Amino acid sequence: MSQIQMEPNHSNVSYQESPSYSPLKQFWKKWCKQRVAFIASLFILLLVFVAILGNWLAPHDPYEPNYSNILSGPTTENFAGTDEYGRDIFSRLIVGTKISLGVGLISILAGGIIGTFLGLISGYFGGRLDRFIMRGSDIMFAFPDILLAIAIIAILGPGLINVVIALSIFSVPSFARLVRGAALEAKQAEYVEAAQSIGASSYRIIWKHILPSSMGELLVFCSMRMGNAILAAATLSFLGLGASPETPDWGAMLSMGRDYISSASHVVLFPGLILFLTVLAFNLVGDGLRDVFDPKSS
């Protein structure tokens, strides 16, 4: 009898000791397999660190001119050389990291929040509201993003704040279309129908069920959209519609240095290189996140 009683207890112990993996551990396990995206994410973390501590990391004053050292090449004192006013390019790149990342992040957050809200109510409620929101998005999609941003800044005036507003506005329809598709798919799921059958409010269903189901797609899209926002902000500054020329913005640095590309190529080489690497890193992270959140991936 004692031997018979011990067997179920032994099975209970083995069941309790069986390993269980949280979603965070599963994500980390899959993410570590994405080696290229993992390296790109480390580069982005480095940029965030530089953006936070840029004023302390810069070896020189990014705004102070030095007319005795104009357009000098890279040296041990000036790692990336100096510009047409003798300002240290490396220090300006460091300080400009906060500007470029800040403009991209704020515009993506603002456009993402508004677009996600519109996409959720459009996909869940449907009807005339859905048609109205989607037709408005179609009208905005008819214009190229950069042309729409230029038109908005032409109305509001140049400046970094207006660049953020323009980037936020042309990000809204993309987020709305993405989230609407996810909401339409999640609305047909059994757990949503079960929540509706027990009388759950629309607000609770949207907030507790539909929105979490689209978070994976949102993270992937935000990562890729972040690179596009940084590139668009640099383009607007290059055209003279964004940051002022004395501001250490990557796009403004490219605009100011284009006249010296033949005689002092380092003036545009290093801003262009850091802009290229940053946009590439966000796109690679987005590709990695897409593979991680893909249910078919192992």
Rank of each mutant, 00 (worst) to 15 (best):
D145G: 15
V48W: 06
P295G: 10
N162G: 12
S174M: 09
Q16V: 15
P8M: 13
E64P: 01
A142H: 05
P158T: 07
A80P: 00
R204A: 09
W207S: 15
A176Q: 07
W56M: 14
A58K: 09
K30F: 09
R290V: 10
A183V: 12
S20Q: 04
A151R: 03
V13T: 11
A151S: 13
R135F: 14
S22K: 04
I44Y: 01
S11M: 15
I150R: 07
I230N: 09
L57S: 00
S41Y: 05
P271G: 11
Y85E: 05
C32Y: 08
A233Y: 14
W56L: 13
A58E: 07
I44W: 10
Y124C: 14
F293N: 06
L231G: 08
A110F: 15
Q34C: 03
S168E: 11
V279A: 04
I139S: 05
N162H: 09
L284H: 07
I106G: 05
V103W: 11
Q34M: 12
T247W: 04
Y21H: 04
D61C: 12
S223D: 07
I153S: 00
M253G: 11
Q3C: 06
Q188I: 06
A233M: 08
V164I: 15
F49D: 09
I155D: 01
G112E: 07
Y63F: 12
L156F: 14
S91W: 08
R290K: 15
A58W: 07
N9C: 07
I99G: 08
